[in-house]
Design a protein around this nucleic acid. Structure first.
Lengths: 357, 357
DNA sequence: CTGAAAGCGCTTACAG
DNA sequence: CTGAAAGCGCTTACAG
């Protein structure tokens, strides 16, 4: 019966047709093009359908229509892991807006057997948003060959594919310039763990994707200032992207003789954790130590002190990606590419380093 | 080509069969039961399939197999609105765990034409998690008649359907008892707006669903203490469930001559906003005013002061719901019902009211 | 206004 | 080991 798969099989259009004494064609019309039926026939069909709880099977309908009215998002990690990170919630807000406007549902498709691409042939969607696929071009090529509409997000890839990226390199550089100008010469960068997948194929500098670009931006700023990493005592620490891990890393980083004068966390979540650690250690921010973040998540304003960070338009990223996808699904052959911009948001958590330190 | 719908039509099993000089049956076997083919045939088919980028169409496969390997979650609001609320992220973490274990993707299905039920026949899933369907039994009945597996979450409904709920009434009562025992006699309850939908069919006391149960719990506590709402100067204020709105409401509530000695927010998000407002107004929490929340979201511990709140096992709720659903999909005819428990978490944001106030 | 027939792209007994 | 045929549940020209 209810809530289970056994019991009376689901009603079918054939059964309704027989019960109503009409053809399956008419049953179909009753649901999809009622005006083609006489009022009497239509009412009778609808009445009987309601009685037996009949509704056209969505799957069959999708198969023949060639449309699912569903957008897929190919996740680089498990659903639960992804939802753990506020970043995704924000990204989905953007995607969701387009879904609402255009009448799509949203399918969350995690990797299958550790492969994002493997997940593709198992998802009944009209197209994919591919989040952070840091792979060689061969896999993207496969995506192309299959002929499924898709758009790449935060990919290292190029402009000849529908894609949206963020100017992470410039963003990180801007923050770094800010810190250098403030006079900081003992800087620790707290990077988020790129996840298990990233271990075996890291790019130059040891990082790929958005993280790699942020690192590159940091180098850019150093170079522009004529400083070496040694000049600023650059340390790089990694931690999984949760507040708790940021807190733990912050404790280790700040509880040292020669602690840095500033911690630049590459995610606000991590920065929040560092703030917690400073609080715990009785270190005043920013007079004793500065803390900077990345993303400008909504919470950044609510932290105490308010967080200096790099704003990245996450929601817009989701919206643009979904827009591009919908347009690709409609058969638009252009390959729109958009690079979203970051901006430096200076609030209260950064200041010049204290003399005595 | 890539990212669009035009260009070379997607390869079909028929084409691969022809190119390989075999039957469609063999092509199917190559993907689903390779051991039934000679190595030579299998390799040839797979090679050709790879060349033309062929993969069995997921839709067709689902139709014939009668399984989508996808769980649906029927949202009471738009995707973007839902993702705005950390509650959903947590709920999805729980659901996502089961998806990972059982190999399901997750479809987010928002209301269609303002109706959750309307959305059902358009989703290609094996079953539904129905979140907060506060409707008359007639609609649940329709759900039953259709014969789709489903599980109700936070529904007012009963035990004869697969469902999971939380003991909200007891939870709110416990907090209220805590506040009364602390000596508070000027209490303001900050409720979250139940959304546009809730306006026209409110239950007794003006609230339905989880909110209604929490209100009932508040009454219970009052009654148990032999107090009337007037005795505790009970005020009820409503606000949309965001930190910003909680902040604005907090400003209004606290910036008064005769301000309450405690604000009991029915959501941590709202409580965080009230804390922000107190901070803004230079009111010390809890010495000048107490603040209590509901949910025990992960952030609650990070707020300053740490938030006293009612813990609700949101993640577990998602996990149990998904478990029940998977079991229903497997044809299990039982109608498991589980009531999860809340617990009072006393931290630093509540204290006895100050004498002079 | 209504229906017979073909077709969407696959899988699966069944037979050989 | 391989294939012809039926079937999953619908929709949509086409014909009347």
């Amino acid at each position: 019966m209810s809530g289970s798969t056994e019991g009376p099989k689901r009603a079918t259009s054939k059964e309704v047709a027989e019960a109503a004494g009409v053809s399956r064609t008419s049953v179909s019309f009753a649901f999809n093009d009622p005006s083609r039926l006489s009022e009497a026939t239509r009412d009778k069909i609808l009445r009987i359908a309601a009685e037996v709880g009949y509704r056209p099977d969505p799957l069959a309908r999708m198969l023949v229509n060639g449309r699912t009215h569903s957008l897929g998002i190919l996740l680089p990690q498990d659903i639960s892991q992804a939802m753990e990170n506020p970043y995704y919630a924000q990204f989905l807000i953007g995607v969701g807006q387009v879904c609402n406007e255009e009448g799509y549902t949203l399918l969350l498709a995690p990797p299958l057997r550790n492969s994002m691409l493997e997940a593709i042939p198992y998802a009944a969607v009209d197209g994919f948003i591919v989040a952070g696929l840091e792979r060689d071009r061969g896999e993207v090529a496969e995506l192309e060959r299959r002929g499924v509409p898709f758009v790449l997000v935060d990919s290292e890839s190029t402009e000849n594919l529908p894609s949206v990226e963020v100017d992470d390199r410039t963003g990180a550089a801007a923050m770094m310039v800010h810190l250098i100008e403030l006079g900081h010469r003992r800087i620790t960068v707290l990077a988020f763990d790129a996840g298990p997948d990233a271990g075996h194929d890291r790019g130059p500098g040891g990082f790929r994707g958005p993280l790699g670009r942020r690192m590159a931006g940091i180098d850019d700023a150093l170079a522009a200032a004529g400083l070496s990493s040694d000049d600023v005592g650059l340390q790089i620490v990694e931690a999984p992207c949760t507040r708790r891990e940021g807190y733990k890393a912050g404790l280790r980083i700040l509880d040292e003789q020669n602690r840095p004068t500033v911690v630049f966390a590459l995610s606000d979540i991590l920065a929040a954790g560092v703030l917690d650690a400073a609080y715990e250690l009785g270190l005043d921010v920013p007079s004793q130590v500065s803390v900077a973040g990345y993303d400008d998540q909504p919470e950044a304003v609510w932290l105490r002190p308010r967080l200096t960070t790099v704003r990245q338009p996450i929601e817009a990223k989701g919206r643009v990606a979904a827009d591009f996808l919908v347009s690709a699904i409609r058969g638009n052959a252009r390959h729109p590419h958009q690079k979203l911009h970051t901006s430096l948001i200076v609030r209260e958590s950064t200041a010049p380093p204290s003399r005595i330190n």
